[in-house]
Design a protein around this nucleic acid. Structure first.
Lengths: 115, 115, 115, 115
DNA sequence: GTGGTCTAGACCACT
DNA sequence: GTGGTCTAGACCACA
């Protein structure tokens, strides 16, 4: 169902995947998400690992839990995730990318050609 | 002396730093590099960690060891590093960057404005 | 209708709420209580959860069930609840409160000022 | 070595214990803490459980980790913990305590006599 | 030696 | 059924 890379913890890859689902509006606010066990089966992962993904999502306010019922995409999840990811992107990814780019002798128009 | 991030091994951060010194022509081919111990002290790092950084540099042919004397920037180091880093950049960094960028609703011209 | 905290079972929060109604003499002995279904709807809770709240109240003798009719505040409910809650308060809550208070550098007169 | 209560997760009781050590100045900033495995043995708990305690402490900034070396009481831990615990106390514990107290017919001078 | 991640599987409280 | 916690034990990367 899903290929995991080795240089990042699986639970993080799962929570990133879910964030992307939210950003792509495939899962919208209020939606009930698959249960921990379902995710575990779908992604061929231990339930604990799936659980941990949900917990990190809860920490950033993207997901909330109704006890005994399941996890839901929380109110304002889209904005919360978008804002957080954009901040990370602008503050970390972009400067680092630009720095590497310049060091390696490329310009943004080169990137444009590649994209 | 140097701040290390948590999501990447320290030895790799050190070897990246050295690669950048080479790319920026601050250290050029034939230069004698600081000893493992000097690096360890300067960067407040375990000597084993500094050693491991040198080993990865040796593996990619950027550095060579003259026994009993020290480490030197090897012949052709600049080209070797540049080629390798460019390959990584084009194959991994650029596609990933573009994907994030699109998902977050930015375009290359936005990036241009930020840079 | 009601906000539930996460660190305590909902059925317990409901039964506490009802105990408080009794202590505050808002519901007095012999009063007919809302039905399980009514509670469930009002509090947006699973009927089983509401049911369980009633059961714990029955266990401590605060509520009695007349079959086919409904739940009633039982004879002596006020005294029973008061006695039980006081015991809990003196034996558990007070010592724990005092301990936290001291550790955080407050005295009872500080609390008095806050209250 | 330590008795754990049933109505709170063990990992939380451990992290509370550590917070108290910090508040009581038994462990001060910069101190190296026992390793995860040591804690696990001392407290007769699974290493994962001890680990989780450390992680919650890291989240609140009381503890930091030097990779491959161990966990340390972080700079400013005392203030961070004190501030956080005080906030919780004033905002949650005190009002709730006062409310119970009044409802059960006690006054602060009664509490004073008990303390 | 250290922490970090993961699996397998159990048990529990709650809805 | 749901999530939450815990154990036992493994493997890995890192210092």
């Amino acid at each position: 169902m899903m290929k995991f890379s080795d240089n990042q913890p699986i639970y993080q890859q799962i929570s990133d995947y879910i964030c992307n689902q939210i950003l792509d509006k495939k899962w919208i606010e209020g939606d009930r998400m698959p249960s921990v066990r379902e995710i575990a089966v779908l992604m061929e992962v231990n339930p604990n690992t799936a659980m941990r993904a949900f917990q990190t999502l809860q920490d950033i306010g993207a997901v909330e839990n109704r006890r005994g019922i399941g996890h839901f995409v929380s109110e304002g999840a889209y904005d919360a995730v978008l804002t957080m990811k954009r901040k990370e992107f602008i503050e970390n990814d972009v400067p680092q990318f630009i720095k590497s780019m310049k060091r390696l002798g490329y310009s943004l128009s080169d990137i444009n050609d590649l994209a």
